[in-house]
Design a binder for these strands. Structure first.
Lengths: 100, 100
DNA sequence: TTGGTATATCGGAAAATTCCGATATATCTT
DNA sequence: AAGATATATCGGAATTTTCCGATATACCAA
């Protein structure tokens, strides 16, 4: 758990927004077919549309969030689904009280 | 409470280190005379010595931490004492669970 | 195999951050 | 007032981050 890497990942308005959206996928990504059940999260294209940034930027942002451990991804066919890693946020919350 | 500003302030190893040192001033800054009682925190020079960075850099880092609300300062004569704003860390810890 | 769709990676211009040395300001002492 | 000490601010070189367009890769469908 690299603290600086995590805080850098959180130091961007769009990335914070993506993380917030991923808290309620059903609400924030109605465009994604429900049969996916949002079990594995939301695919890159949905997030890209909503963010208004380019595909490459969003893909890189998600990879960056994943390297920091804040999200997890799962490839399914041609789609990559991303979802929050809630345990990481709980750890981070604790860490701020105990270590920072 | 500007989230991005806070996370940016925390995205630096030296600044995290300074915040950690300020948790136990008596232990980490024995050079500072005890009559100050560390009531108002630690002065810039002590932090500068310990960090190994230049005076200007440390002064700017402390100002940056203050703008983010993570530390408070008190001028006393020619010294400026900095101490942690513990309430800010508690808020941040909560915020990570509820908003991020 | 060919073309279409979803995502990842590359190369780079512009903006922000890091950290420095020089200098300015504030306060204390004599 | 003059010099010493503590801190703040300024200007800038080097590095990192932001975000893009172009291109590569992976998978699917006909």
């Amino acid at each position: 758990m690299d603290q600086v890497e995590i805080f850098k990942a959180l130091s961007n308005k769009t990335r914070l927004q993506i993380l917030a959206w991923l808290k309620e996928p059903e609400l924030n990504f109605p465009g994604q077919l429900e049969h996916t059940n949002f079990q594995d999260g939301v695919c890159v294209g949905q997030i890209q549309q909503k963010s208004g940034l380019t595909q490459s930027t969003v893909s890189e942002y998600l990879a960056l969030l994943q390297r920091a451990g804040l999200v997890e991804s799962k490839r399914k066919g041609q789609w990559t689904y991303y979802k929050r890693n809630e345990a990481a946020f709980e750890k981070l919350s604790q860490l701020i009280l105990s270590n920072v």
